[in-house]
Amino acid sequence: LSYIQPCVMFPPPACLQCYTCLFPAISPLDCIKLPQECPAGQRCLSSIATGRRGALELTMYEKSCAIPSQCGLSGQKYISGLNFNYTNVCCDTDLCNGAEHVAALGWGRVTLCLLLALGLLLA
C-alpha cells in the first residue's frame, strides 16, 4: 500500500496578489503601492485611520496582506501623541485593495509632520 499525501490530492489555494504601501500615507498624498504575493490564507487589507487634535485632522492609509482575524476590525491606535480611530477592510481578489489614491510619506516624515503640526497647535 502506498500512502497518498493530502496536499497531492488537494492542491493548496492560490495566493493573492495585494498592494502594499511602502510607507503609511497621510491624505491627500499617495502611498507608493507595490504588488506583493501574500502567504496562503491571507487576504488583501486596506486600513484607514483618522486622528484629531483640536482643528487638526490627519488621515493615514495603509495597505497590506492580512490574516483573516484582522479583517473588519475597528478600534484605536496611538501614534505620535494622537489617538487614531481605524477601520480595516479586506477583499479576496488580486490587487483589490488599490482603491484609495493617497500619497506616501515614510514613518520618519509622518512623525515629523505630526510633531510639527502638534507644535503649531501647542504654540
Rank of each mutant, 00 (worst) to 15 (best):
S27A: 15
I4K: 04
Y19K: 00
C96T: 04
L121S: 07
R43T: 10
C18S: 04
S27G: 06
G119I: 00
R109V: 06
F84P: 03
A123C: 07
A117H: 07
C44D: 00
E37L: 14
A117D: 06
G81N: 07
P13M: 02
P24N: 13
I48Y: 04
T50L: 09
L34I: 13
T87I: 09
V110F: 02
E100S: 12
T93C: 00
I67S: 15
R53V: 09
L118Q: 14
C7L: 13
G72E: 03
I67L: 12
L82H: 06
L105D: 01
P13T: 00
G41M: 04
S80W: 08
R52M: 11
A49T: 08
G108F: 11
S47E: 15
G108P: 00
R52K: 15
D94W: 07
L58Q: 09
K77C: 01
L1H: 07
L118Y: 05
C18W: 03
N88L: 04
C91L: 02
V89I: 14
Y61Q: 10
Q42R: 09
Y61V: 14
A103N: 11
L58V: 15
R53Y: 12
R53K: 15
R52V: 08
E100R: 10
T59E: 15
A103L: 12
F23K: 03
Q17C: 01
S69F: 10
Q36S: 08
L56C: 06
V8E: 14
T111W: 08
T87Y: 02
C31S: 10
C71G: 09
P24A: 11
L121I: 08
E57V: 15
L116M: 07
V8D: 13
L122K: 09
T93K: 13
G54I: 10
I79W: 13
A49W: 04
P39D: 10
M9E: 14
Y61R: 07
C96G: 05
G106I: 00
V110C: 05
L45P: 01
D92S: 14
C31M: 02
A40R: 12
D92L: 03
C18I: 04
C91T: 05
G75V: 06
G98Q: 07
G54Q: 10
S64E: 13
R53P: 00
S80E: 14
C90L: 08
C113S: 12
G51M: 03
A117E: 10
A104V: 00
A49D: 07
C113R: 14
C44T: 05
Q42M: 12
C18T: 03
A14I: 02
P28D: 07
P28C: 00
T87L: 12
D30F: 05
K33S: 08
A49C: 04
T50D: 07
S27I: 01
P28G: 09
K33H: 01
A49N: 04
R109T: 09
D92G: 11
Q17A: 05
G51N: 04
A55C: 01
G81M: 06
Y61K: 04
S74G: 11
L116I: 10
L116T: 09
P68T: 01
P68M: 01
G81T: 05
W107R: 13
I79L: 15
S64V: 02
C31A: 13
H101D: 10
